[in-house]
Structure formats: structure tokens, C-alpha cells
């Protein structure tokens, strides 16, 4: 299932004194099975773009096509759509409302009109996917959990709808390192073992480096560039112009090459970097002999 944005523009408060363009002429296709990272400076339109993917915002002009259908057409079934494209907002723990964890996670499937057995099955599965023990947590109040646990409950609430595309707006924001590793690990697992297409908004280049198959760089409501992390992280200048950095390893690689050290230009993960430096080291050693 692919998502295509066809010349999408969006203007906030159109027609009033506070009118301001948020997206300008966005063309974009997200293919089945991709792990797309959406990056850009604060206020560049990432969150606005993300809300177009499941029809929460209607483009001021242009079309959003999900699975071959224009989602803003008159006859389009929005409920069906939101089942296909799951959206996890920033700080999703603030949307919890039920008395128990299990009930909150069941909210989505219940709205889909599933029968109780199926709902129960999905709740258990979703909790398993976010590594929350059903026995231990299902009957607890979501408001007495820790921040990281609350966030996992909220994400499980979206997963329980079993979307084919999962869109996450900064899923690791504000978590401690352990919490963030957990969440990112979960997302990776979902992408790799369940084949869920992932669109993730993130500010951390290091996270993206280890996860994404494609990077979309946004700048002032437009797409500034798109490509694999390997391609993008070589373009230090472009990334910095968009108000972003590159992963620490890509920076190191760049700096070493500027010093005249001959290593490949496209290194960006720790493993590659270590391997390249080690092999250089060994070569150097041979020369010394």
C-alpha cells in the first residue's frame, strides 16, 4: 500500500488575517515497506504534512492518494482510512483517558466495530508488541504508569488498530536513553518482522541513521531533498542549511577526509566507521614495517 501526495499545499487560517502557508506544492510517494524519516527544522511543516497522511487535515489544494484512492474525495471512507494509516502524535501519553490500560488500548478497535474476542486478542498482541506484560499492566490505571510506559500504552492504542502504515511524530521525544532505545527498538521490530511501513518524524540524526531507509528533508513547507541516509549524510552543507546536522560519525568522516585521510566518503554508522578506521590502521601498520 503506497501513499502519494500530489502537489499538496496547505494554508493555515485561510482567508483570515492570520493566514500563513504551511506546506507548498509537496509531491511525494511513500512506498510499501519503506522506513521513511521526515526531518527538518522546527516549524518547517513536518507535523502538518503528517496530519495529511490520514486525512486529519485537508489540503488547501492538491490530492492525497492512499492505496489508489483520493482520501479527500466525497465518497471516501475516512474510518477505513484511519484504520490503514495509524498516526501517533507527539507526546501521545497525553491522550490516555480510560480507567485501565486494556480499555484504553481497546478504544481504537472498539471504534472499528470489532467483536469483543477480536478486540481482546488485538489488545494482547499490541501490548506484546510494545513489551508491556498483559498480566501485570492490563488492569492498571494508565495514569499511574511512568512516562515511558504511558507512551508505550498510547502507541499500543494505535497498533491495536493494526495499521499498514504507522506514522509517528517524534516518538522518542522527552524520554530517557533507555526509554528511547526501547521505543525505537520496537519501531524497528515492527518494520522488520511485521512489514509495517513506517513514517517517522525525528530530530535525532543518530536515530535516523540506524533506522531509516529513506530521508525526506523539509524546509519552510517544501521538500528540500530526499534520498537514502547514505546519500543525504554526505551532503553536510545541505543538511546544515535545512537547520539540521548529520550523525556524529558522518561528521567525523568528513573531518578526517578534509585532513587528507583516505577513507570512503559515505560512512555514517558507528560500525562502518570503526571498520574503516581499523582497516586504515592495519594498512598504516604494514607501511611501517
Amino acid at each position: 500500500m503506497s501513499i502519494t501526495l500530489d502537489h499538496v499545499s496547505y494554508v493555515y487560517s485561510q482567508g483570515s488575517a492570520f493566514e500563513r502557508p504551511a506546506l507548498t506544492d509537496i509531491c511525494l510517494t511513500i512506498e510499501d515497506g519503506e522506513f521513511v524519516a521526515l526531518v527538518g527544522h522546527t516549524g518547517c511543516g513536518k507535523s502538518t504534512l503528517v496530519q495529511h497522511l490520514n486525512g486529519l487535515l485537508r489540503p488547501s489544494s492538491g490530492r492525497v492518494i492512499v492505496d489508489g484512492e483520493d482520501i479527500n474525495a466525497e465518497h471516501a471512507d475516512r474510518r477505513q482510512l484511519r484504520q490503514k494509516v495509524g498516526l501517533v502524535f507527539q507526546y501521545p501519553e497525553y491522550q490516555l483517558f480510560e480507567e485501565t490500560v486494556a480499555k484504553d488500548i481497546a478504544f481504537g478497535p472498539r471504534n472499528q466495530g470489532l467483536d469483543p474476542d477480536e478486540i481482546d486478542r488485538r489488545v494482547r498482541l499490541a501490548m506484546e508488541m510494545v513489551h508491556l506484560d498483559y498480566q501485570k499492566y492490563a488492569e492498571r490505571s494508565p495514569f499511574e504508569l511512568s512516562g515511558g510506559q504511558m507512551r508505550r500504552v498510547a502507541i499500543a492504542g494505535v497498533l491495536a488498530m493494526q495499521p499498514k502504515v504507522l506514522v509517528l511524530d517524534e516518538p522518542a521525544a522527552g524520554l530517557d536513553p533507555r526509554g528511547r532505545d526501547r521505543i525505537l527498538g520496537m519501531i524497528k521490530e515492527m518494520h522488520e518482522t511485521r512489514g509495517v511501513t513506517i513514517v517517522m518524524v525525528s530530530h535525532s540524526m543518530d536515530d535516523i541513521a540506524s533506522l531509516a531507509t529513506r530521508l525526506i528533508v523539509m524546509r519552510r513547507g517544501t521538500i528540500a531533498a530526499t534520498g537514502t541516509p547514505r546519500e543525504m549524510f554526505q551532503q553536510t552543507a545541505l543538511m546544515e542549511e535545512a537547520g539540521l546536522g548529520v550523525p556524529a560519525c558522518a561528521r567525523l568522516c568528513h573531518a578526517l577526509r578534509e585532513k587528507g585521510i583516505d577513507i570512503p566518503a559515505d560512512l555514517y554508522t558507528q560500525e562502518e566507521m570503526v571498520a574503516a578506521i581499523l582497516s586504515r590502521w592495519k594498512e598504516g601498520g604494514h607501511h611501517a614495517e
Binding site: R79, R82, G86, Y94, Q95, F97, F107, N111, G157, M161
Partner: peptide, 27 residues
């Protein structure tokens, strides 16, 4: 924001009778 987040989970704030709509406000 919360409205959108619940709509993303299939909540419906617009249709149904008065009682259903009042119930829909809880989330």
C-alpha cells in the same frame, strides 16, 4: 490536538444522537 489524536483512533465527534455525542466527549 487531543481531538485529532482520538479521531486518529477512530473517534467520532460529529455524528450520532445527543447521548452518543456526549459520550464521545469523554475521550
Amino acid at each position: 490536538k487531543i481531538m485529532k489524536a482520538q479521531m486518529a483512533r477512530g473517534a467520532d465527534f460529529e455524528s450520532g444522537n445527543l447521548l452518543n455525542r456526549a459520550k464521545a466527549m469523554i475521550p
